[in-house]
Simulated assay, not measured.
Amino acid sequence: MAEEAVCSICLELLTEPVTIGCGHNFCRACITRYCEDAVRGSGNAIPCPSCRAEFQIGSFRLNTQLRNLVEKIKEQSLKPGKEKMATQCLEHEEKLKLFCEEDGEAICLICMQSQAHRGHTVLPIQEAANDYQVGDTTDLREPIAQTHTYLSGEIP
C-alpha cells in the first residue's frame, strides 16, 4: 500500500499529490519542476515521467483521496512500533531478511519467490549491509562538490 503513495520522481511519500491525464500521481512540486525542465526543449505537451503519455502543462488535479491516504501512512509511521514496520515487508507482513541486489531493496522470503525478484541476486540482509557499508566519507567531499557545481550549471 505504501508504494502506491510514493512519487516516482523523488521516490518519497507524495507531498500534495496531483494526478495527470494518464492517471499517474506525483508530488505537485516534483511534476511542476519536471514540466519546467521539459518545456525548455518542447511545447506544452510533455511526456509523463512514468508512461510517456503526453499531458498538458498545468493540467494536473489535486488527488484528495491519495493525500488522505498519505497522511494516514505518515501517522502510522509516527506511532510506537515504527521499528517493527521498518523491518517488515509492507506487502506480506513478513520479516525483511534478504536484500535484492538488482532492485537495491530489502525483501522477505515470499518476495524472493515472486515474479518481481525471481532470478535476481539475493543476499542475507546482514551480509548485504556489510558489503554496502560506507566507511569514511571525507574523501568524497571534493567529488560531491564538483558534481553539485556541474549540476547547478556553474561549470568552470
Rank of each mutant, 00 (worst) to 15 (best):
M1E: 12
A2F: 10
A2V: 12
E3F: 01
A5G: 13
A5M: 15
S8C: 09
C10T: 08
C10N: 07
C10V: 02
C10F: 00
L11M: 09
L11N: 04
L14G: 05
L14I: 08
L14N: 04
L14D: 06
E16I: 13
E16D: 15
V18F: 02
V18D: 01
T19V: 15
G21W: 06
H24V: 13
H24T: 04
N25Y: 02
N25L: 10
N25E: 03
A29C: 12
C30R: 00
C30I: 06
R33T: 15
Y34S: 00
C35L: 07
V39Y: 03
R40Y: 07
R40T: 10
R40S: 06
R40F: 04
S42I: 10
G43T: 03
I46L: 15
P49F: 04
C51D: 15
R52D: 03
E54G: 12
E54Q: 09
E54C: 09
F55D: 01
Q56M: 14
I57C: 08
I57Q: 11
I57N: 05
I57D: 05
G58S: 02
G58D: 02
S59I: 05
S59L: 08
S59Y: 08
S59A: 12
F60A: 03
R61D: 13
R61M: 13
R61Q: 15
L62R: 07
N63S: 15
N63G: 04
T64G: 10
T64A: 14
Q65K: 11
L66Q: 05
N68M: 12
L69R: 09
V70E: 00
K74V: 15
K74D: 12
K74F: 06
K74C: 15
S77H: 15
K79C: 12
G81L: 12
G81P: 06
K82E: 15
K84G: 02
K84M: 14
A86V: 13
L90M: 02
E91S: 10
H92P: 00
L96A: 05
L96M: 01
K97D: 11
C100D: 13
E101R: 07
E101G: 01
D103H: 13
G104H: 01
E105L: 11
A106V: 04
C111T: 12
Q113G: 03
S114Q: 03
Q115P: 13
A116F: 00
H117N: 06
R118M: 10
G119W: 03
G119C: 11
T121C: 09
P124A: 06
P124S: 07
Q126A: 10
E127Y: 04
E127W: 00
A128R: 08
A128G: 07
A129T: 14
A129W: 03
N130W: 09
D131P: 01
D131M: 12
D131T: 11
Y132T: 01
Y132P: 00
Q133T: 11
G135Q: 02
G135S: 05
T137E: 03
T138H: 02
D139N: 09
D139R: 13
D139S: 09
D139T: 06
L140H: 05
R141E: 04
E142N: 05
P143Y: 01
I144C: 06
I144Q: 01
I144E: 00
Q146F: 01
T147L: 07
T149Y: 04
Y150P: 00
L151M: 13
S152Q: 14
G153I: 03
E154D: 10
E154F: 04
I155A: 01
I155S: 01
I155D: 02
P156D: 01
